[in-house]
Design a protein around this nucleic acid. Sequence first.
DNA 1: TTAGCCCTCATACTTTAGGGTGATTTTGAA
DNA 2: TTCAAAATCACCCTAAAGTATGAGGGCTAA
Lengths: 157, 157
Amino acid sequence: MPNAVNFLVKNKSTILYGVFLAALLFLLKWLELRFIIINHAFEIYAGAIAVLFTALGIWLALKLSKPKTILIEKEIFTEKPETFVLNEKELIKLNISKRELEVLQLMSEGLSNQEIATKLFVSLNTIKTHNARLFEKLEVKRRTQAIETAKRLSLIP
Amino acid sequence: MPNAVNFLVKNKSTILYGVFLAALLFLLKWLELRFIIINHAFEIYAGAIAVLFTALGIWLALKLSKPKTILIEKEIFTEKPETFVLNEKELIKLNISKRELEVLQLMSEGLSNQEIATKLFVSLNTIKTHNARLFEKLEVKRRTQAIETAKRLSLIP
DNA sequence: TTAGCCCTCATACTTTAGGGTGATTTTGAA
DNA sequence: TTCAAAATCACCCTAAAGTATGAGGGCTAA
């Protein structure tokens, strides 16, 4: 932006005010000519009144005007609180029992059947049976698929 | 804010309207007395100027003053778009090759070694070799553990 | 050129996973 | 109490996964 224009913009209020004051003087001059009022003191008096009441008006407006409020909606992405909520509907729908879900969870943690059996104080065969039922209910063929599906359905974290 | 001022603020429009009507009446009166020019002409004239320039001041202030703004930032919590970004540093750190990562991904999707081999147009033994290296690098014993670890390290979605 | 890594594949073997069947015991709801 | 589902376990067999070792070819940086 050129300096001249920049100056005009920055002092917009001041310039406008000057213009109005000039207009006021012209008005007074016109009035003077119209009524042939020669008294110079009157012009000064009227001018003083004009300036004073202009100031009063400005002060009034600034004091009494309501501030404009602007609402800015700031979007904040949450750092994914990682709060796992079990999909109980799907659990009931697939008819998966508590014990089966337990086995499923341990399976997803990378434990072998033997490790799961030891952890749950049951035999390896029992875990195998649970697995077989789980795979049937989840309609999968392998434990890796079971994990993938169970995670997708929010059955496990 | 005091009640008196509050009243003025609330009825700003009404008051301004009243002021302007009064100004209009004064103007008419002034016009009526214009040619007679009686003793009170000066007071009327001064009053008119006062009212007019008060209005001018108000108008000026409202037009030219910067709006008083109050910024209120409202936080909106949004679920993170769940964009997976590969943890390349960990990948380099663990010295995992592109092919191995590829196998790892397919593994996590629940594919069997044979299915991965078919998909990648290589032999089953090749996949087994890749697996062995992967398990070694990830320091795990089973594919389910590999998947668990890889997901935790953001090597796979 | 050569050392090193990656990708490939093979063979042989062990371990784990999974399928099928049958059975007993527990348990929770009607 | 009674019945069905759930949980438990066993046996046998096959499939898949995993281990160990060796080896050839391609690519790249020193």
